[in-house]
């Protein structure tokens, strides 16, 4: 039950894109087609869960143990960059079909602030190991969920009569505003 409430909290209530503002660049940049949105979303979910797990372990057993907490940001960004590289090599070798689907999105994830943001959040001291894993996984699913819906909306927008100046990013942001209002209503659920 506890796990379920963490999951819902991460997916809907504290949605990474619409209430935490993480990963706005891929949200606006990679949401033009359904396929690329799903690919990006899956890649983010995968890397985010792995990165948050590794960061949590490193933080607790290396940084805190050796009194190196001030190195947090540098260590995390290196962890994410190398993790992305390792995952890329790994799936290239063992699952070429998955690599074809996710390959081009993986390098972009290093500079996705959602991943570093989640690693920073789960190491703030209030997260247990299990909660860190569930929460980062849920956040990834939340990212996938929103970017998928958004890509469908943007395909509809292509054919809509929009004032010329508002085409593209501006109307996408205004649509995101409406979605954020809906997501904000979930705050009363948990």
């Amino acid at each position: 039950m506890q796990v379920l409430s963490w999951l819902i909290g991460a997916i809907l209530i504290q949605n990474v894109i619409l209430s935490r503002f993480f990963g706005t660049c891929p949200f606006l940049g990679v949401s033009k087609s359904k396929d690329s949105a799903v690919g990006m979303g899956l890649a983010v979910t995968f890397v985010m869960t792995m990165a948050a797990t590794v960061s949590w372990l490193l933080y607790k057993y290396v940084l805190v143990a050796f009194d190196l907490v001030y190195m947090k940001t540098i260590v995390f960004i290196l962890v994410i960059a190398s993790l992305v590289q390792i995952i890329e090599m790994f799936i290239k070798k063992f699952s070429p079909s998955l690599y074809r689907a996710l390959g081009i999105y993986l390098p972009l994830i290093t500079t996705n602030c959602a991943v570093l943001g989640l690693s920073t959040i789960v190491t703030d001291g209030t997260y247990t190991f299990l909660k860190a894993i569930i929460y980062s996984f849920g956040s990834g699913i939340g990212f996938l969920f929103i970017i998928y819906i958004f890509s469908i909306l943007r395909q509809k927008m292509e054919t809509s009569p929009i004032p010329e100046g508002f085409k593209g990013i501006p109307i996408a942001l205004i649509t995101a505003c409406l979605m954020a209002m809906i997501i904000a209503r979930f705050a009363g659920v948990a």
Binding site: L18, S19, F21, L173, I174, A176, C177, L178, A180, M181, I183, A184
Partner: peptide
């Protein structure tokens, strides 16, 4: 001040 306002 809410997230939605930021996007708008």
């Amino acid at each position: 001040i809410s997230p939605a306002g930021a996007y708008l």
